[in-house]
Simulated scan of single mutants.
Amino acid sequence: MHRGKGLKFVGDSRVPADGRKPNIPKDYSEYPGKTEAFWPNFLLKEWLVGAVFLVGFLCLTVAHPSPLEKIADPSDTAYIPLPDWYFLFLYQLLKYAYASGPYNVIGALVIPGLAFGALLLAPFIDRGPERRPSKRPLATGFMLLALAGITYLTWESVAMHDWEAAAEQGKIVAEVEIDTSAEGYQLLEANGCITCHGGELQGGPAAPALIDTGLAPEEVAEIAKNGRGAMPGGLFTGSDEELQTLAEFISGLKSE
């Protein structure tokens, strides 16, 4: 047989011509210095970093315990609730005229929905391969706008909130069993004192607690008649005998 005659070359489509196997990932050892084994190298580093943050968080909780308030009272209509710090910007948004009252749906659903929807769509709108923020204007702009809005609303909420009143209304005070059938309590209720001082006389944002005042009946009567601080005078409209009964009742409210 002569050379080159009678020979046929058959190609098989199942065998890549260049020897590549796209469906089989390369071993990490082919990339020295750029990757490492997940177990135990990478996972150990993750655990070490997590342990450092956990210890730091535990030290923070020991040094600054969580501030506790009094037991929640659903009947206390004077209580002003305050959300956690990461929701303060939404809390502040609901204070504006265009996002509260009849427009509450706009502040609670429409504006947050548009804002978070824009953040979710940002990766799909700007799909460029660049990683520098300056070369990704849409993604960078969305993120900066979101951070600026959240920071501003959070700052406004903190600045406008009456922290002294919040601390006063949430203060854990000693409780005493109130005899609501007593004449002194009936006089408090008749003169509208319950509105500010609370049904259990535990106080509120604009009025102190009437338990453990440390005041003598004469001092209580003077305050009830002439007022003190934010409390104006002339609120008590009863007789002198009723004023004395009310003063003795308040002066005798002591926790055990």
Rank of each mutant, 00 (worst) to 15 (best):
I150P: 00
Y152W: 14
Y152L: 15
Y152C: 11
L153D: 01
L153G: 00
L153H: 00
L153C: 03
T154S: 15
T154Q: 14
T154W: 11
T154D: 05
W155D: 01
W155V: 10
E156M: 05
E156P: 02
S157N: 14
V158R: 09
V158L: 15
V158D: 05
V158P: 02
V158S: 02
A159S: 15
A159M: 12
A159L: 08
A159T: 13
A159H: 15
A159N: 12
M160L: 08
M160W: 06
H161P: 00
H161I: 00
D162L: 06
D162Y: 04
D162A: 09
D162E: 05
D162I: 02
D162T: 00
W163T: 01
W163H: 12
W163F: 13
W163L: 01
W163Q: 04
W163S: 01
E164D: 15
E164F: 08
A165E: 11
A165T: 10
A165K: 15
A166G: 10
A166D: 07
A166E: 07
A166I: 09
A167F: 07
A167L: 11
A167T: 08
A167G: 15
E168D: 09
E168N: 14
E168H: 15
Q169S: 11
Q169I: 05
Q169M: 15
Q169A: 10
G170Y: 08
G170F: 05
G170L: 06
G170K: 09
K171N: 09
K171R: 15
I172P: 09
I172W: 04
V173T: 10
V173R: 14
V173C: 02
A174H: 12
E175K: 14
E175S: 10
V176D: 04
V176P: 00
V176L: 08
V176I: 08
E177V: 03
I178L: 09
I178K: 03
I178N: 09
I178P: 12
D179E: 05
D179V: 01
D179H: 10
D179W: 07
D179Q: 10
T180A: 13
T180P: 02
T180K: 14
T180W: 05
T180Y: 13
T180E: 15
S181Y: 06
S181M: 14
S181R: 13
S181H: 12
A182M: 01
A182T: 01
E183M: 07
E183A: 09
E183G: 03
E183R: 12
G184H: 00
G184S: 02
G184Q: 00
G184T: 00
G184K: 04
Y185A: 02
Q186L: 15
L187T: 06
L187F: 07
L187I: 09
L187G: 06
L187A: 07
L188G: 07
L188A: 09
E189C: 03
E189W: 04
E189N: 09
A190C: 06
A190T: 04
N191Q: 04
N191D: 13
N191L: 03
N191E: 02
N191M: 11
G192R: 13
C193S: 02
C193K: 04
C193Y: 03
I194L: 13
I194M: 03
I194H: 00
T195W: 01
T195G: 08
C196A: 07
C196P: 10
C196V: 11
C196S: 10
H197I: 08
H197Y: 11
H197D: 04
H197P: 04
